[in-house]
Amino acid sequence: MRVFLLVFALVWNLALAFPRVGVHEGFTRLVFDLPKGDVQYSLSQENGQLVLTLRGVKAASLDQVVNSAEVVSVQTIPEGEGVRVVVRLKGPVEAKVARYADPERLVLDLTLKKEAASPAKPASDPPRNRPPRPPKPVVLLDPGHGGVDPGMNGYVVEKEVVLDVALRLKRLLEKEGVEVRLTRDRDMHLSPDKREDLSRRASMADSSQVNLFVSIHVNASPTRTAQGVEAFYFGQAQDSRILAQVIRENGGGELGRRLTQEARTVAERILSDIVAQANQRYSQRLAETLGRHLSQATGSPYRGAFPGDFFVLRYAKVPAVLVEIGFGDHPVEGRRLADPAYREKVAQGLLTGILTFLANGAYAK
Rank of each mutant, 00 (worst) to 15 (best):
D206A: 09
V107D: 04
F4I: 13
R29D: 03
S300H: 03
Q296G: 09
F18A: 13
A364Y: 01
G151Q: 02
E115K: 04
A320E: 09
L110T: 04
V161S: 14
Q348Y: 01
R128Y: 07
Y100V: 05
A9N: 11
L163P: 03
A15N: 10
N47L: 14
L106E: 05
A15I: 00
P307A: 02
G253Q: 04
D102N: 12
L112K: 11
N153H: 07
P35Y: 11
Q227H: 06
V3D: 15
F311P: 04
V321I: 08
Q245K: 14
P103S: 14
V323P: 15
H145G: 05
P150D: 02
G326D: 12
A60S: 10
L172E: 12
E70P: 06
L290M: 10
Q277E: 08
T265V: 09
A316D: 08
A267K: 01
Q209M: 11
V86M: 03
T265Y: 11
K114G: 06
V210F: 06
R55M: 02
G252L: 05
D187T: 05
S73Q: 08
T298Q: 03
S199I: 00
T260N: 15
V246H: 14
L163G: 12
D339N: 08
R258I: 00
A59H: 12
I270W: 01
S203E: 15
L163N: 09
A341L: 05
K175Q: 12
R335D: 05
G154L: 05
V312S: 08
A220I: 05
G291D: 12
Q348T: 04
T289M: 13
A287D: 10
P222G: 12
V65C: 09
L351G: 08
I77P: 03
T289N: 14
R168D: 03
G91E: 06
R195M: 08
G147I: 06
F234N: 10
Q236I: 14
V93G: 12
V210E: 13
L52M: 09
T352P: 06
D33P: 14
N129E: 06
I354T: 04
L6I: 04
L358D: 10
Q277I: 06
E230W: 10
P92L: 06
K194Y: 13
V21Y: 04
R343F: 00
N250A: 11
F306I: 00
S73P: 08
G82A: 07
S283E: 10
H293G: 04
L355F: 03
E249S: 11
T225H: 13
V318N: 06
A60Y: 08
R292E: 06
A17E: 07
A267G: 01
L243N: 05
A17W: 03
N67F: 04
L286D: 07
F327P: 10
T225R: 09
E179R: 03
D273T: 01
L106K: 12
L106C: 13
Y233G: 08
G146Q: 08
V51N: 00
N129P: 03
N250E: 13
Q227N: 09
